[in-house]
Design a protein around this nucleic acid. Structure first.
Length: 156
DNA sequence: CAGCGGATCGCCT
DNA sequence: GGCGATCCGCTGC
């Protein structure tokens, strides 16, 4: 991990995962040690490892015990670009994917279960202006493919 | 207790 | 556009 100034991104792509009603959700089969943060209160961070290599970040959005969360899939770096580039090891494709965004923000599994805005290495969320967006099916899943629960900015 | 599939990425063609 | 890397949790034997 590479330290440095605060990195800020404007999120432009997310997906919704809806607990027990959603076969594609890690929480679908109930609570395990790994998925316990998904069942926490809103604002809880759930980080999982993907393909044995990457870290992916979710923010719990539903009530405690419900396990509804938002996967942060991509964003544009608006501050701390040099730090983000150093962490990524390249100057392009800095945060345009869930694993890439996590690496740019120096988020890893040790943050799973903590809460937004709390901790030495904290993840802050700020509301932005409403913007046009489109919905599509979610990416890379094999179950519940028909649900249009991927949300991304319209201007791309 | 072993096998397998995955909410991905980067490099090669 | 296609494929190999890489490892952990869950499922099934």
């Amino acid at each position: 991990m590479v330290g440095g100034e605060t990195v800020e991104v404007t999120i432009d792509e997310v997906e919704a995962y809806c607990g027990k009603d959603d076969p594609a959700s890690h929480a679908f089969r109930g609570r395990t040690d790994r998925t316990a943060p998904m069942f926490g209160q809103p604002g809880t961070i759930y980080v999982y490892r993907s393909y044995g290599i990457h870290w992916c970040v979710n923010i719990v959005a539903g009530a405690e015990g419900v396990a509804q969360a938002v996967l942060i899939r991509g964003g544009l770096v608006t501050k701390g670009l040099a730090t983000a580039v150093a962490r990524r090891g390249r100057s392009d494709h800095v945060a345009d994917g869930p694993g890439k965004l996590s690496q740019a923000l120096a988020i890893d599994g040790s943050m799973s279960g903590s809460e937004v805005g709390i901790g030495d290495i904290s993840l802050q969320l700020h509301a932005g202006q409403p913007i046009p967006y489109v919905t599509t099916p979610r990416i890379g899943i094999s179950k519940a493919k028909e649900r249009p629960w991927r949300f991304l900015t319209a201007d791309r």
